[in-house]
Nucleic acid binder design. Structure first.
Lengths: 135, 135
DNA sequence: CTATTTGCAAACCCTTTGCAAAAAT
DNA sequence: ATTTTTGCAAAGGGTTTGCAAATAG
């Protein structure tokens, strides 16, 4: 909680309750769709509007605090951008699972940078599986 | 060209001129947005409709022949899914550059599979850079 | 006090759909 | 001959926008 306020301050964003709630919901790493995220934020702030959630999501994306993941079944899912990890997305139901990455991941980013000759802001890895446990 | 017809046949898709043209346009690896793709296909088939391009894109996506890449500035871009490669996307203008991958990439997929304990359909790697040469 | 953010509703625009004609196999 | 695909136009739905009121710093 207090963490999120500080995080927002570092990015010169006002720490409104709605915005904190969005971060908090994403912090659970359930990779919600917008509907799910909206519902989650509503639990804390019943009067929040969908537009506000969209606006915050865009703001947070611009700051690189939130990752938007395009799933095979068309819906976007969201995640807080914290420790680098691999998103494993199910081709069938679209659900996403995090897989913590090991050292090889950092090495991989360095390899890409070396090959490109320029620094890379971030690397997103999306692994698609045919089906997941929950579907 | 003949190649695309065959590719479509292998996937039980009818090789219509419009569909071939979509593949051909994507085969140039310019990672077009839909508008750009539509325009490109129109050059060959002036009467093609945007709906047809959308429908073909969806069909080809389902068959895993086309990759949809979510760019930081909100627009989707498309690529033929051929040899695995890394998409380097510009955070500023959204343009995408291909970076051929070396052996490490295959190894990386194997690592993920080992960690997951299940087979991975495909791995997409998206590297984001602050700005590219063309912007 | 000033700048940002919220919430509402309307607007916007991208994407999909229904259907009849055309084309592919 | 059968099945898929096309193209048009309309519908649909997700996302954004404008603006006044509320809130954060």
């Amino acid at each position: 909680m207090k963490n999120y306020v500080q995080l927002l301050k570092e990015h010169n964003l006002k720490a409104t309750p709605q915005r904190i709630s969005v971060l908090k919901a994403l912090g659970e790493h359930t990779h919600p769709t917008i509907d799910e995220l909206f519902e989650k934020v509503r639990e804390e702030h019943p009067t929040v509007s969908l537009a506000t959630v969209y606006k915050n999501l865009n703001t947070l994306k611009e700051e690189g605090l939130v990752a938007e993941i395009n799933t095979p079944n068309g819906k976007m899912r969201y995640d807080i951008f914290s420790m680098p990890h691999i998103h494993v997305v199910c081709a069938n139901c679209g659900k996403i699972e995090d897989v913590p990455c090991d050292l090889a991941y950092d090495q991989y980013q360095k390899d890409i940078e070396a090959k490109l000759g320029k620094s890379v802001k971030r690397v997103d890895v999306l692994a698609t599986v045919e089906a997941c446990d929950g579907c």
